[in-house]
Design a protein around this nucleic acid. Sequence first.
DNA 1: GACCTTACGTATCGAGCGGTATGGAAACCC
DNA 2: GGGTTTCCATACCGCTCGATACGTAAGGTC
Lengths: 203, 203
Amino acid sequence: METLDKSPIRGRPREFCAEEALVAALRVFWTKGYEGASMSDLTEAMGITRPSLYAAFGNKESLFKKALDLYERDKLAYVGAALEAPTARGVAERLLRGALDMQTTGSDPKGCLGVISSTACGSEAECIRVEVVARRASSDAALLRRFERAKAEGDFPDHIDPAGLVSYLSAVIQGLCLQAGNGASTEALESLVKTTLGLWPGR
Amino acid sequence: METLDKSPIRGRPREFCAEEALVAALRVFWTKGYEGASMSDLTEAMGITRPSLYAAFGNKESLFKKALDLYERDKLAYVGAALEAPTARGVAERLLRGALDMQTTGSDPKGCLGVISSTACGSEAECIRVEVVARRASSDAALLRRFERAKAEGDFPDHIDPAGLVSYLSAVIQGLCLQAGNGASTEALESLVKTTLGLWPGR
DNA sequence: GACCTTACGTATCGAGCGGTATGGAAACCC
DNA sequence: GGGTTTCCATACCGCTCGATACGTAAGGTC
């Protein structure tokens, strides 16, 4: 759709790197949430002026979705990788440890962008909420397929319901992110993960 | 502090019931969050004018805290009652079922006011966040005391860490509220609870 | 050089926010 | 009924929000 550039660049080239600016924007959204991040916050962190932002990213909602894409690609890569673990327990362990690592190491903001953005706020953010919820639903669907395969492969006792296990594991991880965003200590989060893994059924 | 009323009522009495108005305000905060609820939303739902609101409740932050008190008293009564269950499993079951009932029955808004309000938003809501987080911390502390007693009474296998179990159970319930707020079906939430109870250690 | 296209910087838009000043109306006291 | 106290209603405050108009600067093409 946007591949045909017969004359590659025309006019004055922009003076900033859109990718770097998007990284900065992601950090702001991650810290303050969609509505809490004002355009002034964003332009300041991105080091560009307001019209430049609108020219490069459309509007606030469009900018957020691009930041969300970046977030899923860079920060949530461990989720896709976790599904390739050989057993359901391995999947759960990789998901939990991945979330734990993200919340306890590195200089990224605490909490999960998805969790922050999926809690209801003003009506203008409603479309953001449905977007985030939809993405999570697709992620949960992939996890469900993986657990159904695991069940067929005998990873669980018979009485275990894969769908229940998906919402269960999702809930634990969401709770972990929430607690991390609210200032929980590293030890508390580690013992949360340890406890969860200690209770995990099957192999 | 405000008990000494030698001359009981003076001047024109107010024309609305403060308690009913607070119930309406709680509902608005519960649905839209602290920042998402505008003063216009609140006054409309409460059926009073803006100056009446300020005269009766101070300001928005003060109104929210009063609504939060009401919420804990009326909607979170099951939490205190749950701690009186005879075993740790009973405590967990009552907490989970209480949360599930609240999210699936009745006409109240979905999601948990505490969870909604503890996710970071604008800087003006930061004091609200710390308030909510502090209340949750005290609730978790009570749960920890209960689980330590339970451990002394032999409700758990030896390898179980009560503190880890507290953050674990909190996470599950927070995740449940989050999913409920995001439109999860009743069956999904029920299977979440069922799965959690199926994995619960000890008695 | 002239010309075209695009980005930048300033200054601003209309709307909505939380919070109030002000004047009149309603109930109590004496 | 006068005086006092409090409540209600309208209209408004300063401020910030997301989003833009407009003039200027910078690079590429010919």
